[in-house]
Structure formats: structure tokens, C-alpha cells
Design a protein around this nucleic acid. Structure first.
Lengths: 219, 219, 219, 219
DNA sequence: GATGAATGAGAATTCATTCAT
DNA sequence: TATGAATGAATTCTCATTCAT
């Protein structure tokens, strides 16, 4: 279960028992929501479900969040907040296309693996329905990726390419492969990153030889 | 508005008035659902909404579908049913990686463009929520892509690669770029296909020079 | 499955194919209803359920019956119609209290055993709910029993007793013991009749020694 | 209107206003249900009917009961809970068959008279439909009667008889006569008990002379 | 007469949200 | 602030019945 980033109390404020309980309740709700979203999917989840997964009273929920959308967004933002700065930071340091791409995938897949339940809440797979919510934070993350690509083009690290489509391609590959990765028995983030990076560096011809038994047989 | 595939009446059978009305009603509901999903998004849509978008009585809905999931799936399957055979057919004819990849993206983007509202119902982007339902038909489509890749490997057209991840990458890029494509003013399926194909053939280094002003500025 | 008494066609009318089908459909519905009532209980049964248990179309039902109440009553009346004349006939011949009582119970229990599913439709026992519908025919049967008692009093066969209460007692014992009888492994109608008769003839002191293992252990 | 047995709050606990309202609401629903069942009969009653007979909101019903079955059972159990201990207690004290039987009927008929509307809700007679729900409590009551009979046999108070059938006979007579009793103008529980007791003690020959005009003429 | 789809009233139930305690 | 029962609008879904074919 991920630990959510806690809103920083105003500096100077003593974190009294009151504050502590407040933060704990917020945590409790976020974690319960994360579990519930991961289990039922976002669409099927109701506020009631979240409350039920909590020792708290229904009224208490509304002291912290306005709706299920609100909690969901908090989870997402939280998630994006943890991963985005890392991604950005690594990318700006990149001296080559390869570094840029490879660090992007590596960081993303590692995050996904380390925070599986959270990722599942965002991108859920039952047999039939996937939901993915792109909160402002996440959208900002996409935007940032695009800007980083544009900056890299400007720096001459990247050739002139359609940054919008490239961003889309990276995002698509990242999410889709992350999902397949989670279905495999061993959580080999390195292999996943290597695959994606090779694809973006040299296309299909440059892809690594597969380890045997990589698929999971189903769709 | 897409025309849904109609269950074929037995050849020679006179389509009585009853049969006809039945087919029309099914159509009516599917089209209404498509519109409503595209407008409100899948999650926010209720069966009532669909019925309201229809001149029919509420009970009539249940003569044709069990739930909103059911209609959604019918739309999806319908969609997959229209595109899958075409994709497969084109791919098996492919004599090279390039043909395989390029025909896949071209066919897909053309389908998306020709059937925009349907695609939007499947893969909708408000600012916040995407739903994608992988119906058996769609899953079978993914599976088929993977099998086609495996067959191409066996034929020596493709090198030995992780077919599962490659399939995931293609799917991710296809859906994600399709979405960006639909946001642009001009529906340039050729350009989108060219971009995706180039990426898979030679990586970022092989991407075409962008036409100017391709982005739409927002996320 | 009981065979329902068929409405006699007007004398002189040729029972053409039309007539035959009509009667068959009526039969079909009655038998289906009987099965369904016995399975789900009267309250939980819907007209739809009855139709579903039939190869006929829903509209057809309404050519024969107005509602589920109507079918139910037809079953009941049918049932009462088969048992009532027999009961009455035997009772009027009775020369003594014992004959009167014994023939009543014997005939009733034999009818119950021979027509179990029909009886179950009338008097159903899941674990929790019993329904018993007293149609006009059945009520007339109770009335007739009372009148037969009164007649027997008038004839001097019976002492002066509260005929209403006596009728109630006979009915209560008959239905309740019939139910227990049906739960036992062996369908010993003779023993049941003997028990009830003995009770009414001489009270508890006159009851027969029980065969071993008579109870069924549950409630 | 019967007063329902209230779940006992922990001793010493101040019944807060909240607790109180809860109990009152439960009462309100039970009483309304009782009235409605008695008026429409169990089968014809809907949850809506019960709610409508209440000043409460529809959702409130479901805070207390799951369904109409559930309320019905609560009424029944409640009823059984009030009568069962009394019956058992009196029976174990019985020193003779006569005491055993007479106290059983007397207690039962007095309860029925004192709690008429409740009894009517349980065992209703329109002209056509009776429902009787044998809740676990009621079934336990039958079981207890049977056990008491068996104990009496063991003690030598009763002769060796088929306890199962005897129980059934007592139950049948009790319910059926109770019903006739309620239809009469005067509620003579003593007479009803006397009749039933005499029947079980000496059979028809031992029945008391009837008061005149006891019947109510109808079925 | 038989058929079975359409109808729409209405039943059961859930749910987000409020608010007195 | 926490609680959790009350609320009643909204939703899902069923059902008896009709009626065009």
C-alpha cells in the first residue's frame, strides 16, 4: 500500500493530537479507496464502498473529500507527484536520446512495480473493463514529457520530430507494457525498460532477443 | 454514426415487419448508446440516459440488452468485428516487417477516422476519465496481432522478439496516437501511420520531419 | 402430474382440431402452473414464470386465463372438484361417527398421496413460507363438511356439537397431518387416517401405538 | 396493535436520543407492516405499501429490514417469542394429559385474542389466500411442543403415541379453531379451549354441548 | 387463435449527502 | 470533529397486459 504524501502542516503549527488524527483519517481513506478502486474499478466503486472499507463513519468522509472523484484525483495526483519530479529531473540531465528514453522507461517501470496497487487503481484490468483517469497532475505529466522532448530538440539532443506524437507513443508504450509486465510472474522492470528503449532507439530490428517463456499465454 | 452490423436473417426469408422493427430498434439503441457514451463518458452514463436518448420505452431496452455493460460490449464487439478481419488479412499478406507494421497502423487509423464517434465511445477523453472495455472480440484482436507476429517470426519476416511486448507496444502506440490524431484539425491518417511505422522500423532517429503546427497546444 | 378435468365441449359439437388444440393449451398451462407453484410457491410465482414453463407465447396465456389468480383457482377448483364429491358421497353413507370420520380422513389422505404435486401447489412448504389458497370450491368443501356434520347431527349419528369448530378441527388436522405424512419416507396413508380417526373417536387415550421411527427428525 | 419486543439496550447505558429514535422507527415500521399485512394480506403487500403506511422515507426502511420477508419474519419471531416460553412453562408443570392439553389451548387462544391484529397478520383470511410463515422461532415452537410431548410420554403422563402426528394435530386444531373463533362475535377463548381440549381428551363423543348460534354462517 | 415485442407503470433498492447528537 | 441514521431522488429492472402481425 503506498504511503500518500501528506499535506504539509503550516510551518510553526504544532502537530497536536487533532492534526495527527486528521492526517491519519485522510490516510485511512486514501488507502481504503486505493484498495477498493483496485478491486472494483473506478466506475463501479461508490463512496459507500470506500467508507465501508474504512473504520470511519460516512459523515467523516466528507470532512476530507467532496466525492469519489475527489479521492481519486488525490490518489492520482499523489502518484503523479511522486513520479513526475523524478522523471523530469532525470530527463533534463540526459545527454543523448538513449539516456532520455531509457531513463524515462526505467523510472516509470520501477515506479509501477514499487507501487503496484496504486498503479492498478489508475489502470485497472479485470477481464473486460479498463479505466484510466487522467487527472490534471497526470495530464501535466504528459505535457511535461512533451516539453522535455521539445527542450531536447532545441538542445539538439533530439532530431526534429513531432513531439506530440512522440509523447503519445511513449505514454502508450509505457502504460501498455507496464500492464503486460505486471501480468508476468517475475517483475522484471529492467527487461521491460530495455525492450521499450530498444524499440524507440532502433525500431523492431534493434529489439533484444526475448528470454524464453515471456508471454503469459492469455490475451 | 456507425452502422452496426446486423445479424443476417436467413437468406430467402422475407424480413417480416416484425423482424425489421426488431433490427431497427436494436440499431436505435446502439446508436443512442454510442452518442450518449461519447457525450457523458461510459462511467457517467446510465441505462436511463440511453433510453432517454431513444424514442423507445424503458422496458424495450431490456428486450435487447441486459445492462449498459452489455450495450457497450455490443458496440465494442461490433467495432472489433469490423476492423479485425481487415487487419488480419492485410498482415498475413505482408512480405516484410515494414509492410506488416505499416499496414497495421494505416488500416487502424483509417478505421478510427472513418468511425470517429464509435471510437470516441470506446476511448473517450474528457479531461479526466478514459474507459476502455476489452471485450472478448477486442481481446481476440490483440491475441490475433500477437499470433500474427509469432507467425511472422516463424516465417522469418520478423526477428526473434518478445511478441507479447511488441503487441503491447503496437496497441499502446495505436490507441494513443489515434487519440492525438483526432484532436488535430486535419485528420491526417497517412501522417499518423507514417509516424508510427517509422518509429517501429527505425526508432526515433528514423521519424519523419514534422509538418509545422501539428500540436493542438493543450494536453 | 394430475390430469385436469376438461371443460366439456357443448354436446353435439365436433371436437375439431381447433377444439383439441385449445384444450391441450389449457392443459399445458395448468400443468406448467402446477409445477411452478410447487417450485416457487404461489406468492413468488409470476405469470411470466408460468409462461416460461410452457412452449406457448405470452399472449396465448390470456386466451385462457385472466391472471395467475385465475389459473390458481382453476387448479384448486379442479382439485376440489375431484375430491369433494367423493368425500361427500362417502360421508352421507356413513352410519356411525366412526365411519364418517374415518372415511373423511382416509379419502383425503389418499387423495393427497395420489396427487402430491397438486397438493403441494396448494399447501407449500419451503423452510419458511406456507401459502394456502382457499378458493371458492375449497371453501365450499369446508362448508359441505360442516353441512354433512349438521346433517349427521340431525340424523342422530352425531351428538349435538359445535359443527363449525368440529369442521375446523377436522380441516386443521387433515391438512397438518397430511403435510407431516408427505415428509415421511413411506407414504402410509392408512396409518395417518388411523391416527386421525382414533384421535377424533376417543382422544389421545385412544391413539394407536406408533410404529417406530415415525418422525422425520426435523421440525 | 402489539408492542414489539425491543432489543434490550445494555443495562446502565443511557438511551440517547439517537437510540430512542432508532427503536421508535423500528417499532413504527413493524406496526405499519402489521397493519398492512392484516389489510392486504402478505402476498399482495409490497415494501412500498409498508413504507407508505409510515411517515418515514423509503431508504429508512432498508436501514432496518432487508425485505418484506424480513419484516414479516420479525413480526413472527416476535410473536413466537412472546408466546413460546409461556406455553412451554405451563406444559412442563402439567401433571396429566388433560392439564397439558388444556393449558396449551387456553394459553394459545388467549394469546391470539390478546394479540388479534398480530395473529391476523400471520394467519390471514381473505376469501382466498392464507400465508403462514414458519420462522425459525415458530418452527422451534413446534419442535418444542413435540419435545414436551415426548417428555410427557417419558414421564408416563402420556401414553406411547406418535408425537410428531400429535403435535401436528394440536397445531392444526389450534390455528384452525383460532381462526373460526376470531370470526365469531364474542371472543370466547374459554369455550374454544374447552372444545379443543375435550376433543383431544375424549374425541367427538366428549365434546361439550354447543352454545346456540355459535357459527357465523359463512364459510 | 397464436405470437412475441412493446409498453410504461411501478417495485425494489441504492446512493450521495445532510445534520442532529 | 466524528458519528451514523434519515432522507428521497434516482436507478435498475420486472411485470402484466396489449396489439399488430
Amino acid at each position: 500500500m503506498p504511503e500518500f504524501i501528506e499535506p504539509v502542516p503550516r510551518p510553526g503549527a504544532q502537530a497536536g493530537k487533532r492534526e495527527l488524527t486528521k492526517l491519519q483519517n485522510r490516510q485511512t481513506i486514501l488507502e481504503a479507496a486505493c484498495r477498493v478502486f483496485a478491486e472494483f474499478g473506478y466506475g463501479a466503486t461508490t463512496v459507500r464502498d470506500i467508507i465501508r472499507a474504512t473504520p470511519l463513519a460516512s459523515g467523516t468522509f466528507y470532512n476530507y473529500f467532496k466525492s469519489k472523484e475527489d479521492v481519486f484525483q488525490a490518489i492520482q495526483d499523489d502518484s503523479a507527484l511522486r513520479i513526475r519530479p523524478r522523471l523530469h529531473e532525470e530527463r533534463v540531465k540526459a545527454q543523448s536520446i538513449e539516456e532520455f528514453i531509457s531513463v524515462t522507461f526505467r523510472t516509470f517501470f520501477e515506479y509501477v512495480a514499487s507501487d503496484e496497487s496504486n498503479f492498478r487503481a489508475i489502470r485497472r484490468n479485470t477481464d473486460t473493463l479498463r479505466v484510466r483517469m487522467d487527472t490534471p497532475e497526470i495530464i501535466a505529466g504528459f505535457q511535461e514529457l512533451r516539453e522535455d522532448i521539445e527542450a531536447a530538440i532545441a538542445k539538439g539532443v533530439f532530431p526534429m520530430v513531432d513531439a506530440d506524437y512522440l509523447m503519445a507513443a511513449i505514454v502508450g508504450v509505457a502504460f501498455e507494457i507496464a500492464e503486460r509486465m505486471l501480468r508476468r510472474d517475475d517483475l522484471d522492470t529492467r527487461a521491460a525498460a530495455q525492450f521499450a528503449t530498444a524499440l524507440f532507439m532502433g525500431g523492431i530490428g534493434a529489439l533484444p532477443q526475448p528470454a524464453t517463456g515471456q508471454g503469459c499465454g492469455d490475451s
